[in-house]
């Protein structure tokens, strides 16, 4: 076993670089956004430095609070959907022979090269009535005429889950690769079926990484706005769609800033609550 050593000046030197980058490119811009959220909005124009709470007051109107709640809800659902698909997928992926294992992994990761615009447009075509999957069902005789599955809530959820899926697999992959085969073999030696082994051994052992994957998808999808804007009706638009609209179309950067901070704070609260529940239940277990 390696001994722990006290950090040397070189260690601090190495740490200083990422900390400085974080300060310059994250904390300072974030501080600027906080300041901007209190600026005075000039209707028909832009904004000017001031200290006003008007943007925050507007944020507290029912319509935007309801949007925030909706955004949290759909992104939590996307997180759950991703884990439900990605966890068994990754588990069986790591149990495959090397060649199909690598091929499948490359296939999943190649989805990362697609931009959100491409993904959103492709799904809008696939779920549309003109050239979408319902045409195949018509061709097979299962339907009389093609129908559109977008814009809809399901289409947005599908799109969000699709863009986050590779990240979810990437989060689960290292842990599941290292999962000791002797553990599952022991369970099966004791008479557990493969299915029972998966549910009662693999899933509980992997709970921390499942939580990490779930939260990653939640926060990642919370920042997405194109998917919701292109695949949903207005009632399926997340708060990010409105942030983008306010900042770029209405030039109302103070209000966009207030919404962005609110959304970030909400996501931190949700992450905190989930982490707390996770640690509490682990202690009880």
């Amino acid at each position: 076993m390696s001994e722990r050593r006290d950090p040397t000046p070189a260690t601090y030197g190495v740490l200083a670089i990422p900390i400085a980058v974080l300060a310059v490119f994250f904390l300072i811009p974030f501080g600027m956004i906080v300041a901007t959220s209190f600026y005075r909005r000039i209707q028909g124009g832009f904004y000017e430095p001031a200290f006003e709470v008007a943007s925050w007051q507007r944020l507290l109107s029912d319509v935007f609070l309801e949007r925030a709640a909706f955004s949290i809800g759909i992104c939590l659902l996307a997180g759950a959907a991703c884990i439900a698909i990605a966890f068994p997928f990754t588990y069986f992926l790591t149990r495959m022979r090397r060649r199909p294992h690598v091929a499948l992994l490359i296939l999943v990761l190649s989805a990362l090269s697609l931009s959100e615009v491409i993904v959103a447009f492709t799904w809008s075509v696939l779920l549309g009535r003109a050239a979408g999957i319902s045409n195949i069902l018509v061709w097979l005789g299962a339907m009389n005429e093609p129908v559109a599955y977008q814009p809809s809530f399901i289409a947005v959820l599908l799109g969000l889950s699709y863009i986050a899926f590779p990240y979810c697999v990437l989060t689960l992959y290292p842990s599941l690769t290292r999962l000791d085969r002797e553990v599952t073999e022991a369970a099966q030696t004791l008479g557990a079926s493969p299915w029972r082994t998966f549910w009662t051994v693999v899933v509980p052992i992997s709970r921390p990484v499942i939580m990490a994957g779930f939260l990653l998808v939640f926060v990642f999808t919370l920042g997405s706005y194109l998917i919701a804007a292109l695949l949903g009706r207005p009632e399926h638009w997340t708060l990010s769609v409105f942030i983008s609209d306010q900042a770029s179309f209405n030039a109302n950067v103070p209000f966009a800033s207030a919404m962005a901070i609110f959304l970030t704070a909400l996501s931190l609260v949700v992450v905190g609550v989930v982490a707390l529940i996770e640690s509490r239940t682990r202690r009880v277990a």
Partner: peptide
């Protein structure tokens, strides 16, 4: 991940 969503928001909010 919390940080991941921020660049998009920062970009949307401009200067």
């Amino acid at each position: 991940a919390v940080g991941l969503s921020l660049p998009a928001l920062l970009a949307a909010c401009g200067r």
